[in-house]
Design a protein around this nucleic acid. Structure first.
Length: 905
RNA sequence: AGGCGCGUAGCUCAGGGGUAGAGCGCUACCUUGACACGGUAGAGGUCGGCGGUUCGAAACCGCCCGUGCCUACCA
C-alpha cells in the first residue's frame, strides 16, 4: 500500500515546488475571456521592483490567493493579474546607492545613461519578488504580468494625462510644495511623514521702523528663514498689537522694512508672543497668509533646491550673507541665532516639541519650496468617488474605513504629480522656445501646437509613481484599447490591501476608474491590518525586527505560514507576528498528514466508495461526522464571503483536529477493524474518505500544497465527485469547492453523539483525576435514566469501551452502584467506575468534594438568577426555560454526587 | 489638537447582553498500530478603572487611565 511509504513527518520542501510547477505547466492559473462564465478578478497591489517579499506582502497575497483559489474552485472565471511597480523615487534611490558603491554619481552619467542603469537593475532584480510570490503559492496569471512602465501602461499614462490636461484637470503652476532636498524632488502632501521632535522656540526682537525703542517680539522655530521674511503678522483683535498694524519693522540682519499685518487665521492669540514672522516662500501657512493679504505679500526665496541659503537674497546685510550663503538650512540656523544674539536681537530660547515633515523615502527633513509644478485638480474627481462609496457601489471591509476615506476625500487638496527625478513616466508636455506655449500630446510632439515651431523641449519632470498606480485596474486590462479583457473583467471584484495606502492608492484608483471607465474599479475593498513585530512596532530593516517570510517558509513550509497569516487576519487590528504560532500550524499540517495516512492505510488502492454516503450501514459516528462536516462547509463559505479569513481558518482547524481526528478517527476504528468487504467497514471507509477528501478541498485555498499532495494519494474513485461532477480528478485546484448538503446536518444525531462523548469524557475524567494508569484495566457501569437512552448507548458501547479503554461496560436502567466506586454524572445518566483494589478512596472523596463545590457555584448563580422576579418576568421566555432546565440538571447532578460521597464514608 | 483602534489566562490573540474561549506555555500521566510536530486529564481570568443603561454588562453608553496608529496650518 502506498501509505506505508509515507513518512510520519510531512515534508513541505519535497512537495511545494513540484506541485507549483505542475500547476504552471497545466496552465491552471491562466484565465481566458473565451471561457465565459461569471468573472472574478483581482489585480495585485503591485510590489515595487526594488522589493523583497516581506511579511506584509506574504499576508496580503495569501489572502488574495485564498479568494482566487476559492472562486476558481467555485466555478468562476477567475483572473488574478500580477505585476510590479516602477516605484519612481524608491528605485532611483536604490540604483543611486548601488552606483555610489563604484563612486558614480548619476549626474556624471547623465539622464539617459542613468535610466539605462535603472532598467538594467530592474531586469536583474525586478523579478525577484515575483519568484518569491510563486514560492508563496500565488496563483496569478503570470502570462498577464504587467509593469507600470511597460509599453502598454505607459500609453495609458499618457492618454490619461492628456485627457485630464485637456479637461483642465491637470495644470502647471508655481506653488509652494514639499521638497525633499536629498531626493531633489517635489513630493505630494501624503508623501511627507510627520514626526515629533524636540526643538527650540526662539524669541526674536523686530524693532519698529519709527521707533527702535519699541520692539515686536516674534517666536519662531526656524530663525534662519527670517532672512526671507516679508511681514510680521499679529491678530487684528490683539490689544497689545492691533494699533501697530500698518506700520513697519526693520527686519534684523537685513536692510529691509517689512509691514506689520493683521491676520486672524495665521495668528493664534494664545501661542508664543502673539506676533508671527511671515516667510511667504518657505512656510505653507505664511504662503497662504501672503495670498490672503491685499495686495499679496511678495515672496522672497532664500533657500535653493538643496535647502541651502541663497547668496542673493534681497537686502540682506553683506556680512551676514557672506557667512551663511551656501550653508544648509539646519547649519545656517545656528549661525543666524549667533548673529542675532551678538547684535542683541535674541530675547530668549525655550524648548519646544513640534512635528517635522520628513520624506517618506529617505527620511530627510522636507522643505517647503516654491517651484513650478504640475498638479491634478482633485476636487471634481473626488466628488463622484465619494458618491460611489456613499451609495454602496464600493464597499469597504471592515466598514469603518469608509469614514477614513470620506474624511480625506472631503478635504482633498490638489495633487502635485511632478517629480524632479529621472526614473518614471516623463511628462508628455513640450515647451515651445519660440512662443512659450505648452503642447501636451499622447505621442512625442514634433511641432508646437500653437505656432508650429519645431523648437520644442520636453518637460524634464516625471510623474509621481502613484499616478500610474492609480490606473492599474484598467491599464493592466489593456486600456486605452477596448480589449475584451477590459469588457469582461472590469470592474474587478475586490481590492485587497493594507490600511497604509488608502490615500496613496485606493482613493486615487477610485477617482481615475470612475473618470475614465465610468465605473468603479472594484466592488469591494478589503483593508487588512499591518503586520508588526512582537512589540507592536512597524517592521523595518533599520530596526532589525523584520521577520523574513522566506525564512519562515524554509523552516515551517508555505502552508503553515499561509495558515498562520490567515488565522491572524482578524479585522481592524495590528498583527503582532510571532514564530511560535507558526510552529503550532506546522504541527497542524502534520496532523492532517497523519490523519490522511491513517485513512489511506484503511483504504484499498482501488477502493470504490458506496454510492450512498448514508447507507443503512453507516454508523452513528459516520452520520455525526457528516453532519459536522456540512456545518463546517457552511461556516467556511460564509466566513470567506464576508472576508472573515480567521473565522474560516479556525473553523477548519477546530473541525479537522478536534472533531475529525480526536473523535471520528477513533470512532471509526472498530468498523475499520472488521474484515475487508464487510458492510460496516465499507460504509465507514466511504464516509472516512469522503470527509477527508471534502475537507481537503475546503482547506485548499488556505493550504494549497499539502492538500494537493494528499489529494493525489487518494484513490481515484474517492476524488471523483458525487455531485456536480466535472470529472476533474487531475488536480484539487480545479476540482469543485465543497457546497454544504443541508440534509446531512442533523441536530438529533449530534445530540446522540454528545451523549456518547460525555460518557467517555466522564470515564476519562475519573481515570485522569484518580491517576489510574492507562495500562490498568477498569470496568464501568452506566445507569441510565430511561430505556431509550440505554438502548442508544448500548449500540455505541464499542465506542465507549475503545475510547475510554474499558475492559467491561455494563449499561442499564436497573444497574446498581457497586460499593467502592467513582461516580461521574452526565445528562440523563450516571457513570460508575468500580475502584475496588485500584485506588485509595480518599482520592475519590476529594474529587467528589471538588466537583460538588464546583457545581454548587453554578447552582448558586442560576438559582439567584431564577429567583429574581424581574428576570423571570422580563427576560425572553426561551432564556428562562433554558436556565430553569439547567438549574434542575445541576441539582440532580449534585444530589447524585452527594449520594456517592455519602456511600464512600 | 482632532479622528480611529486597542486594553480578556503567564505570552499571542478570538469572542461578545444570558455560567469566560483558542493556540503556545505550565502541571500530572501515557511510546495505546495515524500522528511525541502526538494523546489524556488538569491548573490558571473580579475581561484596564469609575459611573450609567438593563431583570442581567466582560460585551451597550459616558468619563478617566494606559497604549498604538492616522490626519493636522501648534509660528
Amino acid at each position: 500500500m502506498v501509505s506505508k511509504e509515507l513518512s510520519k513527518i510531512y515534508d513541505p520542501k519535497s512537495v511545494e515546488e513540484r506541485w507549483y510547477n505542475v500547476w504552471l505547466e497545466k496552465k491552471y492559473f491562466h484565465a481566458s475571456v473565451d471561457a465565459g462564465g461569471t468573472p472574478y478578478c483581482i489585480v495585485i497591489p503591485p510590489p515595487n521592483v526594488t522589493g523583497q517579499l516581506h511579511v506584509g506582502h506574504a499576508f496580503d497575497n495569501t489572502l488574495q490567493d485564498i479568494l482566487i483559489r476559492w472562486m476558481r474552485m467555485s466555478g468562476r472565471n477567475t483572473l488574478w493579474v500580477p505585476g510590479t511597480d516602477h516605484a519612481g523615487i524608491a528605485t532611483q534611490n536604490v540604483v543611486e546607492r548601488h552606483l555610489a558603491k563604484n563612486n558614480i554619481d548619476r549626474h556624471q552619467l547623465g539622464r539617459e545613461k542613468f535610466i539605462e542603469e535603472v532598467w538594467k537593475w530592474k531586469k536583474e532584480y525586478g523579478g525577484r519578488i515575483i519568484s518569491q510570490l510563486k514560492r508563496l503559492g500565488a496563483s496569478c496569471d503570470w502570462d498577464r504580468e504587467r509593469f507600470t512602465m511597460d509599453e502598454g501602461l505607459s500609453r495609458a499614462v499618457r492618454a490619461v494625462f492628456v485627457t485630464l490636461y485637456e479637461e483642465g484637470l491637470i495644470y502647471r503652476g508655481e506653488r509652494l510644495i514639499n521638497w525633499c532636498p536629498r531626493c531633489h524632488t517635489a513630493l505630494s502632501d501624503i508623501e511627507v511623514e510627520h514626526e515629533d521632535e524636540k526643538g527650540k522656540l526662539y524669541h526674536i526682537a523686530y524693532p519698529l521702523s519709527d521707533d527702535h525703542n519699541v520692539r515686536l517680539t516674534v517666536a519662531t522655530t526656524r530663525p534662519e528663514t527670517m532672512l526671507g521674511d516679508t511681514a510680521v503678522a499679529v491678530h487684528p483683535l490683539d490689544p497689545r498689537y492691533k494699533d501697530l498694524i500698518g506700520k513697519t519693522v526693520d527686519l534684523p540682519l537685513t536692510g529691509r522694512k517689512i509691514p506689520i499685518i493683521g491676520d486672524s487665521i495665521l495668528v493664534d492669540l494664545e501661542f508664543g508672543t502673539g506676533a508671527v514672522k511671515v516667510t511667504t516662500a518657505h512656510d505653507f501657512n505664511d504662503y497662504d497668509a501672503g495670498q490672503r493679504q491685499t495686495p499679496n505679500l511678495p515672496r522672497i526665496k532664500m533657500l535653493d533646491d538643496k535647502a541651502a541659503i541663497l547668496s542673493d537674497i534681497p537686502d540682506v546685510l553683506p556680512d551676514v550673507l557672506r557667512q551663511v550663503a551656501g550653508k544648509p538650512a539646519k547649519k545656517a540656523r545656528g549661525m543666524i541665532v549667533e548673529l542675532l544674539q551678538e547684535r542683541g536681537y535674541l530675547i530668549k530660547t525655550e524648548d519646544h516639541a513640534h512635528s517635522i515633515g520628513k520624506c517618506y523615502r529617505c527620511k530627510s527633513v522636507v522643505e517647503p519650496y516654491l517651484s513650478p509644478q504640475w498638479f491634478v485638480r482633485t476636487g471634481p474627481l473626488a466628488e463622484p468617488a465619494i458618491k460611489a462609496v456613499e451609495d454602496g457601489r464600493i464597499r469597504f471591509f471592515p466598514r469603518g474605513w469608509e469614514n477614513t476615506y470620506f474624511d480625506w476625500m472631503r478635504n482633498i487638496k490638489d495633487w502635485c504629480i511632478s517629480r524632479q527625478i529621472w526614473w518614471g513616466h516623463r511628462i508628455p508636455a513640450w515647451y515651445c522656445d519660440d512662443c512659450g506655449t505648452i503642447t501636451v500630446s499622447p505621442t512625442d510632439a514634433t511641432a508646437c501646437g500653437n505656432c508650429g515651431s519645431k523648437n520644442l523641449r520636453q518637460e524634464t519632470d516625471v510623474l509621481d509613481t502613484w499616478f500610474s498606480s492609480a490606473l492599474w485596474p484598467f491599464s493592466t486590462l489593456g486600456w486605452p484599447e477596448k480589449t475584451k479583457e477590459l469588457a469582461f473583467y472590469y470592474p474587478t471584484s475586490v481590492l485587497v490591501t493594507g490600511l497604509d495606502i488608502i490615500f496613496f492608492w485606493v482613493a486615487r484608483m477610485i477617482m481615475m476608474g470612475l473618470h475614465f471607465m465610468n465605473d468603479v474599479p472594484f466592488r469591494h475593498v478589503y483593508i487588512h491590518a499591518l503586520i508588526r513585530d512582537a512589540e507592536g512596532q512597524k517592521m523595518s530593516k533599520s530596526k532589525g525586527n523584520v521577520i523574513d517570510p522566506l525564512f519562515m517558509i524554509d523552516q515551517y513550509g508555505t502552508d503553515a505560514v499561509r495558515f498562520t497569516l490567515t488565522a491572524f487576519a482578524a479585522q481592524g487590528r495590528d498583527i503582532k507576528m510571532s514564530t511560535e504560532r507558526i510552529e503550532g500550524y506546522r504541527n497542524f499540517a502534520n496532523k492532517i498528514w497523519n490523519a490522511s495516512r491513517f485513512a489511506m492505510m484503511n483504504l484499498e488502492p482501488d477502493f470504490a466508495p458506496n454510492a450512498e454516503l448514508m447507507s443503512k450501514d453507516a454508523s452513528l459516528a459516520d452520520r455525526w461526522i457528516l453532519s459536522r462536516l456540512n456545518s463546517v462547509i457552511k461556516e467556511v463559505q460564509s466566513a470567506l464571503a464576508d472576508y472573515r479569513f480567521n473565522d474560516a481558518a479556525s473553523a477548519l482547524y477546530q473541525f479537522i483536529w478536534h472533531e475529525y481526528c480526536d473523535w471520528y478517527l477513533e470512532f471509526s476504528k472498530p468498523a475499520l477493524n472488521q474484515e475487508e468487504g464487510s458492510a460496516p467497514r465499507k460504509a465507514t471507509q466511504t464516509v472516512l474518505s469522503h470527509v477527508l477528501e471534502t475537507t481537503l478541498r475546503l482547506l485548499h485555498p488556505i493550504m494549497p500544497f499539502i492538500t494537493e499532495e494528499i489529494w493525489q494519494y487518494l484513490p481515484e474513485r474517492v476524488r471523483r465527485q458525487r455531485r456536480g461532477d466535472r470529472g476533474r480528478t487531475e488536480s484539487i485546484m480545479v476540482s469543485p469547492y465543497p457546497a454544504a448538503n443541508e440534509t446531512m446536518i442533523n441536530p438529533g444525531i449530534e445530540q446522540d453523539m454528545q451523549m456518547v462523548m460525555d460518557t467517555i469524557l466522564a470515564i476519562r475524567n475519573i481515570r485522569g483525576e484518580m491517576n489510574i494508569a492507562p495500562s490498568v484495566q477498569i470496568a464501568a457501569i452506566v445507569k441510565v435514566g430511561n430505556k431509550e437512552l440505554g438502548e442508544h448507548l448500548e449500540k455505541s458501547a464499542e465506542y465507549v469501551k475503545t475510547l475510554a479503554r474499558l475492559q467491561e461496560l455494563r449499561i442499564g436502567v436497573a444497574e446498581a452502584k457497586p460499593k467502592t466506586t467513582a461516580t461521574g454524572v452526565i445528562k440523563g445518566a450516571e457513570v460508575y467506575v468500580p475502584l475496588e483494589g485500584i485506588i485509595d478512596l480518599t482520592q475519590e472523596r476529594d474529587r467528589l468534594m471538588k466537583e460538588i463545590a464546583k457545581i454548587s457555584e453554578d447552582i448558586d448563580i442560576f438559582s439567584r438568577k431564577l429567583s429574581n422576579k424581574d428576570f423571570v418576568d422580563k427576560a425572553p421566555k426561551a432564556v428562562v426555560e433554558k436556565d430553569t432546565a439547567k438549574l434542575e440538571e445541576f441539582r440532580v447532578k449534585r444530589e447524585k454526587l452527594e449520594q456517592s460521597l455519602k456511600m464512600l464514608r
